[in-house]
Design a protein around this nucleic acid. Structure first.
Lengths: 150, 150
DNA sequence: CTTGCACCTCTAGTCGCTAGAGGATGTAGG
DNA sequence: CCTACATCCTCTAGCGACTAGAGGTGCAAG
């Protein structure tokens, strides 16, 4: 009978208040019951769900993937093949991302090192950007593809 | 006097047609002259600028950073300290990102490996997400912070 | 002269939130 | 009981960097 306000839910789960409402809006979290004054009232299970979501987001899973993972969690007798597949796909994404970023790192290091700290016309930073042929490493085919988790 | 259409500019620079128009809209690229029929007509210098922009975007520089880099390029007698600083900041971002992703990789690997390929109630993927205490590595403080380049 | 592609503008959508306006509710102190 | 004040409510708009689509015009080849 303890009523958990959205603020408490936020503090307990680590998910910000507007984000909780957002998750409700997109159907990740069921709409909770309301108090007489129309305020959301959560239960412990909702907190767990929010922690689950937050954790998955921190791992870089997309909301759609989390939606699938949550339906799996809701029915524990299902095969976990989908969860497995989602995690594996995410792992492959992360590995690719790391490879790309390593290539970027090498190139940025060369740019920064090559900068004579003088005038722009001797600056390798600008030069490399202007002329792709100067690249330390080719990295064509890199395409912006979302997903952050800094 | 060769007139470069937006389609040719796209093919030569590797920047998509709508993206070129977008860059014009946000002022990264000057509005080119127009043909009688109101079609954009580019010059070789515009292609170079587009290549510069594309390359910088591939390296993960934000549009605002590129704006600065372009003004530096336009005046080659300036000090390149700003370009240097921008590249260094980007390098630090990339290094941080790599570290975070390595931590994610470790955790995802543990999840995937721990999956018994049975039912959900034995699945470590779901379990780890539900209970942060199961994490192989702590990665709190990770906050989504934009910037992709897959 | 017609077919068909490339071009034009404009608006709206993507993702995962975040910020702000403007108002209602809940709680603690006087 | 009244007043602050924090917290809650809904709603809309904005972020970055594009992308997609509607609805219309230009142009070159057959």
């Amino acid at each position: 009978m303890k009523k958990i306000t959205i603020g408490d839910a936020s503090r307990q789960s680590g998910v910000k208040v507007p984000t909780i409402r957002y998750y409700e809006g997109i159907g990740l979290l069921a709409a909770p019951s309301r108090s007489e004054g129309n305020q959301r009232s959560y239960e412990p299970a909702d907190i767990s769900r929010l922690v689950f979501i937050r954790h998955a987001r921190e791992l870089g899973f997309e909301v759609e993937a989390i939606r699938t993972l949550l339906t799996l969690q809701d029915d524990p007798h299902q095969s976990c093949a989908s969860a497995d597949a989602i995690a594996k796909a995410r792992l492959i994404e992360v590995e690719q991302r790391i490879r790309s970023l390593m290539a970027l790192k090498v190139e940025l290091e060369a740019m920064v090192e090559g900068c004579g700290h003088g005038r722009v016309d001797q600056c390798r930073v600008i030069e490399v950007l202007a002329d792709h042929g100067q690249c330390a490493h080719p990295h064509h085919g890199l395409q912006a593809s979302s997903l952050s988790v800094s």
